[in-house]
Amino acid sequence: MPQEPRLVHIVDDVPELEEASPLTMVVVLDGFLDAGNAAARAARHLVDLGEGPVVATFDVDQFHDYRARRPAMSFVRDHYEAYDAPRLVVRQLRDTGGTPYLLLQGPEPDNRWEAFCRSVREVVERFGVTRVVSMGSVPMAVPHTRPIAVTHHANDPDLLIGASAWSGELRIPSSAQALLELRLGEWGHAAQGFVAHIPHYLAQLDYPKASAALLEQVERAGRLTIDLSALLVEAEERELEITRHLAANEEVHQVVVALEQQYDAFERAQASGSNLLAEDQPLPTGEEIGRQFEQFLAGLDHPDTDQQ
Rank of each mutant, 00 (worst) to 15 (best):
L33T: 05
D30I: 10
R87M: 10
T99R: 15
G98M: 09
V47L: 12
R70G: 14
M25A: 12
S21G: 01
T99C: 03
R69E: 15
Y101K: 06
G31C: 12
H79Q: 06
N37L: 11
Y80I: 02
E19Y: 02
L33I: 09
E16A: 15
A56T: 06
G52E: 04
T99S: 10
P71L: 03
L17T: 11
E19H: 03
R41W: 04
F58I: 11
R70M: 15
T57F: 00
D65K: 03
G36W: 01
V55L: 03
R91I: 08
T24E: 07
V54G: 13
E51H: 02
A82H: 07
T24V: 14
F58A: 08
D78G: 11
V26I: 15
L49W: 06
L23N: 00
G98F: 10
V90E: 04
R87W: 01
P100K: 02
E18W: 01
A85M: 08
V89T: 11
P100A: 06
T57M: 00
Q92V: 01
R77V: 11
V54S: 09
A85N: 06
P53E: 15
P15C: 14
E81C: 13
P86S: 02
G31Y: 02
V76S: 14
R77P: 01
A85T: 03
D95V: 14
A56Y: 00
L88P: 05
F75R: 07
V60P: 06
N37G: 13
H45G: 05
L46Y: 05
L49N: 08
T24H: 10
L29V: 03
V27D: 08
G97P: 01
V27R: 14
F58H: 05
A39R: 07
V89N: 11
R70K: 14
D95I: 13
P15V: 13
D78F: 08
T99Q: 11
V27F: 08
G97R: 10
A39T: 07
R91A: 13
T99M: 07
Q62I: 01
A82F: 03
L93F: 00
V47F: 00
A42F: 08
Y83D: 08
R94C: 14
Y83C: 04
